[in-house]
Amino acid sequence: MGMKAYIVRRVLLFIPTLLGVTLLIFAILQFFTPEERASAYIRGTPKNPDVIYRVIEKYHLDAPLHIQYYFWITRVLSGDLGIAKSAGNIPVSVALLKGIPATFELVIFSIPSIIFLGIYLGIKSAVNRDKASDHIIRIFSIIGWSLPTFWSALILISIFYGGLGWVSAGRLSNEAYGVVTSPNFIRYTRINTIDGILNGQLWITIDALKHIVLPVINLTIISVALIVRVMRSSMLEELSKGYILTAKAKGLSNDVVINKHAKRNALIPVVTISGVLTAGLLTGVVITETVFNYKGIGYFAAHAALQMDIPSVLGFALFVGLVYSVANLIVDITYAYIDPRIRVE
């Protein structure tokens, strides 16, 4: 089958991509002297300069580049990315693993709502072109797109947290936080909604869901316009094509013509945008996270950058590269699933 061969080929291509990402970050590292790079592996500021030289020797930081790269990539693969000084002198990998689940949780809930709502509204808009519903959808989605993230977030907070007093900001209520951090609650995934179920404490899940609703709404408001507009224009293009006329002349209902024939073709550009959007959200929801006091990976990266915490920033860059590579991989495979012509090259 063409599909399987295509997936295998595409996954194999993923390996050199990752190699490229690591090479790029390694190249950036070379802007720093061996001493500076050595200090990334030391907690705090060493009193004795000998410590630095011992680290340089131990980690081969002054060896020829290819040897250096070999030792560096081995350390990276074993999870040693240095010490995150901005996050209280814990290893960068630990700091990343602390932040990623929170962001991941946020994105996992936002992306379906953004994509499905965007596709639905985009189709509605295209099918009712130039009618009232089309104008309304376009106006509201573009308003959402133009809102400053922090502003819409603050408005949501002041209405629902301040005015109506539903829940406070943060990932969990104080009570739930106490339970989650207690030793008899096992944090399997660090994603609270899932851990709540795994620990058999459903109220934790519900509590986490309550806290995630507003950030998700905020991300949806500001991102959905992108999908709506791409879906609308690509749907309009497909609806004017010959095969749509053929489908109608065959006597198919409008529902089949739109949701079977036009939609599948129109989805192709939307898949690209969705991939970029998902990767973008996973790596850069700093403002939403900050305003809602939802400490994820964006929050960590922003702090690290402000404090010139080089190992943390580079660790984050590695994460960003990985996320975009995986997103591209998924996008390419989805393409091939939708459009048979892509399976052959």
Binding site: Y243, A249, K250, G251, H261, N265, D339
Partner: peptide
């Protein structure tokens, strides 16, 4: 449509859905 009257169009590659 399609049952009692049907139509063939000029460009066969355009009148078939590619996917």
């Amino acid at each position: 449509r399609g049952a009692e009257i049907s139509m063939i169009f000029q460009e066969p590659s355009a009148s078939l859905n590619p996917v």
